[in-house]
Amino acid sequence: MTRINDVFGALQAGGGKALIPYITAGDPHPQQTVGLMHALVAGGADIIELGVPFSDPMADGPTIQLACERALMHNTSLWNCVEMVAEFRRTNTTTPVVLMGYLNPIEARGLDAFAAYAKQAGVDGVLIVDVAIEEAPEIAPRLRAQGLDCIFLVAPTSSGTRIESIAREASGYLYYVSLKGVTGAATLDVDSVAAKLDEIRAHTKIPVAVGFGIRDAASAAAVSRIADGVVVGSALVSQIEKHQNEAQKLPEILTRMLAEMRAAIDSTHA
């Protein structure tokens, strides 16, 4: 069993839902990232998605683009990201970490070298935003060979046939993109998400986390009623942007924000 499977297994046994925060590694400064990861756990994170900064994040909205730019000002590299996870693992051996990013920085270091290094550091899963199932046959098996889960996106535009092929390649969980757009876009429509989740579940038993458009405790709670997990990214990253010069206060701010979401989610399943 992988750490990710353990988390979903335990949650499902207790009727709980996963809270999955995203932050960009190196934002606002590489030295703060591990502290922020622990702060997310303190706020109730079940899984952490750690963004690998890229110069051309074409699927991300302005909030995460700016986070990438802040991280790249300090030259945060893929290897730095992996090393941050290794440092995080010294004091946390239970919370799964998924690296989320784009293909080019990974290929620049070599896919196999990356997979081995990431596994050794304690990374649990990898989500490569610009690798869909069409290009996955050359990539996903090499990640799986190291025991890494391959997380794939499912979108409102994904047909039944596509969902089936995605589910065959995926492990850990599926990341359902709640709306047509980039990260940090408009508010999601819970009813249409619910309908699509039914369609996805007709094809697969893999847990489905929902992201894009979750900005506060209320929207997190609403999504947790229908999904197995709730991903919150841009809402956290905008807090990092707002308080980027307050290194001391930032962990507490993230913990508090996530704890509100945690409480709202848990209250709907009490």
Binding site: A59, L103, L153, T157, S159, R162, K180
Partner: peptide, 18 residues
């Protein structure tokens, strides 16, 4: 699959694939 030898292809997020 849109490949010219090892090049080309379709490396975009899922929403655009369909």
């Amino acid at each position: 699959r849109g490949h010219f030898g090892p090049y080309g292809g379709r490396f975009v997020a899922e929403t655009l694939m369909e």
